[in-house]
Design a protein around this nucleic acid. Structure first.
Lengths: 218, 218
DNA sequence: TGTACATCAGTGAACGCGCGTTCACTGATGTAC
DNA sequence: TGTACATCAGTGAACGCGCGTTCACTGATGTAC
């Protein structure tokens, strides 16, 4: 019982997690680029200098937060794309999953929405990288659907990007509409947007041509 | 010549503008919530205390920046929605306008993208309010198009929101892809997304029913 | 036009405060024998 | 199992620095007569 080799290691992990949790909470009302090291350690109840045992800087902690926040998003997206049923059922189910995720991890959602275009380059890049992987995964799921027969890989990815942006945008709007009528309104609009994109998807090949669609670059 | 009643007033306006310009430039590498009053006055070359002759706080300056940044966006969106021609032409023209705007006012675009979900509530709310007005305006333009015959007002607005989000997202991507091949790639993807949304729009009534469409709330 | 007074954008000293980072340290946990 | 030494997460004092805000001020611009 007393011989587990990791008492010290476990305590360290616990403190590290406390730092991440405290930072996430403090970030509700500010951006990462103004979060202070002393502010975070004060919230945890340790000396400022102990921070350096876990992270080199607040920026470094921010990158760790990206992994944590998007790690929790990953299974949610997996479940969403794995949902079966017709279009309407899938849309309703996806919106329930998004709303549930926002309620379960509001600080994670806020952090990603805020820092995706935020002032800290390395964090922005970490988010961008992770979202790229999500988009690729959504794209793979979309490609398996018979509706995508004849689609170029590029077109599948542009559709995946559209869906990922829509999900993120909706999650962000849910944040500010915690419950009740306001949330219903957000859900209704999001459902219709997904429906419209779905209709565009179904009619894509009729209009945009086959594997080598027309170009319209700027 | 020497009797214009506003020499003092003109000088004040000039200093105020210098403060806005300096802040915008300093915000390239950080968020508003970490921008310092002394940092801004130092960049302008005036005493820190002079700041208070123009703004009550950095937050206040941020709200003024929202008006300036979205004020410059307004005519651009007006022109975009007023463009004539078929779908492909309109998409290409819209993307040219967006790219041109990003090149002309990169700091404005960055500011809006960053602070739209940023850490300063009043600024976030100011952006949200302005974007709501844009969306309404785009909605009015869309409603005039024969394609929108039979659409409910709610549906027109949800489509307008989709377009506004797409434009903003594309502008933000253009920022990080200043020119050349990278920008071409962003433009290609954005053009296809607009095309897909357009196809969804044209087929909306066939699938979603008439004025009282089906519901799919979460 | 000239004079006397009012306004007010910008100054500069001063303040108390919290910041990030350094350093030598302590004492519980881990390891070798 | 017991002992002697190594590791290292967390401490606490100290540092120099830039911050936002106050205050009484200066001197050019504006106004009244």
């Amino acid at each position: 019982m007393s011989h587990i080799p990791g008492v010290r290691q476990a305590q360290k992990a616990k403190t590290r997690q406390a730092l991440l949790d405290a930072a996430l909470e403090l970030l509700e009302g500010q951006s990462l680029s103004s979060l202070g090291l002393r502010e975070v350690t004060r919230a945890v109840g340790i000396a400022p200098t102990a921070f350096y045992r876990h992270f080199r800087s607040i920026e470094d902690l921010g990158v760790a937060l990206v992994e944590e926040a998007l790690g929790s998003l990953h299974p949610m997206i997996r479940t969403t794309v794995a949902t079966t049923g017709d279009g309407e059922e899938r849309i309703a189910r996806a919106l329930e999953l998004i709303a549930g995720h926002v309620d379960a991890y509001p600080a994670h959602v806020r952090f990603i929405a805020r820092e995706r275009h935020g002032g800290v380059r390395s964090v922005r890049e970490a988010i961008h990288g992770e979202l790229g992987r999500f988009t690729a995964e959504v794209g793979e799921a979309l490609a398996k659907d018979p509706v995508s027969a004849g689609w170029s890989e590029e077109d599948v990815l542009m559709l995946a990007q559209l869906y990922v942006d829509l999900m993120l945008g909706t999650a962000s709007l849910f944040l500010e509409a915690p419950a009740g009528e306001a949330r219903e309104r957000v859900a209704r609009v999001a459902a219709r947007q997904m429906r419209l994109v779905g209709i565009g998807r179904e009619n894509w090949l009729d209009r945009a041509g086959g594997a080598g669609a027309a170009d319209g670059g700027a």
